[in-house]
Amino acid sequence: MTRRAVKFGRRVRDAGWVLLCGALLSGCVTTTVYQPLSALQRPAIVDPQLANFEGMRLLVRCVPGDYIEASDADLLCRKVGSLFRNQGARVETDVPRNGRSSRNLQEGTPPDLVVNLSSRLLHKESSGPLWALTVLTLTIVPAYTEYSVAQDVTIRDSSGFLLASDSLKARFIEYFGAGVWGVNWVLDAVVRPPEEEITGDAAAKDFSRDFYAQLSQLAFNARVRADVLRSFEPRPQSGSNPRQTGAVP
């Protein structure tokens, strides 16, 4: 083996160490814990894998604000749009910019349901001295940042009549530190069953499951309420036939 090859090998090893340290000090040392505060932990009956909105037109409007920028709202709208498309709906999305909607409800075929989404930051907490201590101890002493957020959902018909509304509130605690990540990783690997795991993308999966389930349930409730308030007259464009059950007098 030549001297150059040895040197190259040493550099690769050094780069590996740098990458490992970088990873430890950035992404993988962050452990996010998700806690549903209200509404998100409710069970949902509707199965989002079925065609619950077959033939319906939905407008999903994601309102940017202090907490969510327009580009992020656009991304959120696209994801939520996919959720309803998967359930058989024809979905349009709208991200109002500068308070003006890009979609005029008076033009074209009116949607059956208009889903409005807006986000609020309820609370944020982080300790400066703890962050300093974290840096000084090379993240052995972990720091954390805590967020409480609300996702407000309102669902209206095309005339603006409110059919359903809810505020889905969640709390996220982001622990930063190799230590807390390591402890949880060990617990996940040894003690916790898969559904109780905390590290990795568990928080994202859990929140997404709750959020999409509640959104689907709210929209379905709104759909049935719209049918009832229309005295079950068929929608102008839809040919869908809701499954009807329940006891009768």
Partner: peptide, 14 residues
């Protein structure tokens, strides 16, 4: 006053 469930998939009362 009649209070009922219309669809088995919903979680609200009519």
């Amino acid at each position: 006053l009649g209070i009922m469930l219309i669809d088995e998939r919903e979680t609200q009362l009519h």
